[in-house]
Design a protein around this nucleic acid. Structure first.
Lengths: 219, 219
DNA sequence: CCCGCTACTCACCGATTGGTGACAGCGGGA
DNA sequence: TCCCGCTGTCACCAATCGGTGAGTAGCGGG
């Protein structure tokens, strides 16, 4: 048997920090998931890896393998968490407006989506990830995000039907594409196609242009 | 004084490939630049590094440091090369159409840009890079791309003035954002906001929606 | 013919990556 | 009380990364 006392003394700062992590698998799992989401949101997918997540969670990476089956499972858990995105962003009322026409609806939806993405770094990082990589793990994350977005749109749309004669699905996809790219460009470079996207005044101009476009198609 | 014959024989596949690279600095520089552009276009910015470029160029990475001053200089050289992007994509005529209104112009420009980006993997990768990272090297590359795009738009616009009463700069930025995001989403996931972007039929629908949007704002 | 300049290659460095096996320590059940 | 299982830690692995210093190979001018 080896001398434990010596071994304990040889530990760096042994006893310096009184709060030793209690043995709680659930808490550790939550800490890992939170670390992963925070890391992805703050640093982006570039330096998103087992080592970085474990470092941020303050535990050994082995636990990530054990509890989530590696990075893939962890990413999948993040995707599952994305389901909560929807219910957090469904306003109870229509903001005091009466949405009589499909144009009213889409204008409001566009601006809401723009703001929601502007204030959601995690969603932005996932969006950028989707565009930059095409691996299986990203594809599944993308699917979860896409599903959340679709559900959100459906809930918001209510029973209002799109006008006939226009391919609303395609038009809306183009509009959503514009919103997503504007937000991504703003978050990284602060501009898009020469249009500055920094100050709130910039965003007012952008919102106005977006409204004008939506009104142009849907009247 | 050392035996060359033995040394030659010890080389792997010595004499197997008769074409030994001639000593030509210019050619090597061009090979490195071509390797960098090809690698970026095909593999994306994720695995874009000194080692990978040198491997593809078939030379030692040391030469990249020597001739381009490292990856930064190489990226800058790619950016400088982007200036040629403009002149390659300026059609001589207007495709037999008379562009009487600003709406005519923007509709045509939108579709041209859509196609140009769809057929330019390097530009797409750079675009995705801009959105995902915000380092100095990417910022400079972004600037070069932005400048090229602005020049292209200016050349194409000619002397046609935008209608009064609309913030054409903002509206056009939104439209360009939509185009860029659609192309990026198509290249990675094959869809955007539930809209499939794979077959040519998909793209026809998208183009129609885009035209409808442009016509909506600019009449 | 030889020498020197230059293009080029190689070997090595420390750091970091994803991944695995072994071990320590606590706690509950037999 | 002993022991097994679960939680957590640590040490180590091969591979790859960016980066550097030293040395080789070949062409051209004297």
């Amino acid at each position: 048997m080896l001398d434990e006392a010596v071994k304990l003394e040889s530990l760096p700062e042994a006893g310096g920090e009184p709060e030793r992590r209690v043995r709680d698998r659930g808490a550790t799992e939550r800490a890992i998931l939170a670390a992963a989401k925070g890391l992805l949101a703050e640093e982006g997918f570039q330096n998103f890896g087992i080592n970085a997540v474990a470092r941020r969670a303050g535990c050994d990476k082995q636990l990530i393998y054990r509890y989530y089956g590696g990075l893939d499972g962890l990413v999948e858990a993040i995707g599952a968490d994305l389901g909560t995105w929807v219910k957090d962003r469904i306003p109870e009322d229509t903001g005091g407006m009466f949405l009589l026409t499909y144009g009213d609806l889409m204008e409001r939806l566009s601006l809401l989506l723009l703001d929601a993405l502007r204030n959601d770094p995690l969603m932005r990082r996932i969006l950028a990830w989707e565009i930059s990589e095409n691996t299986e793990q990203v594809r599944r994350l993308s699917e979860a995000r896409s599903k959340a977005l679709a559900l959100w749109l459906e809930r918001m749309r209510g029973s209002l039907a799109p006008p006939k004669g226009v391919d609303a699905a395609a038009v809306n996809a183009v509009i959503i594409a514009a919103i997503q790219h504007l937000v991504l460009a703003a978050a990284s470079g602060g501009q898009c196609a020469g249009l500055s996207l920094k100050t709130s005044k910039d965003w007012e101009k952008t919102a106005t242009a977006l409204k004008r476009i939506v009104r142009g198609v849907y009247g």
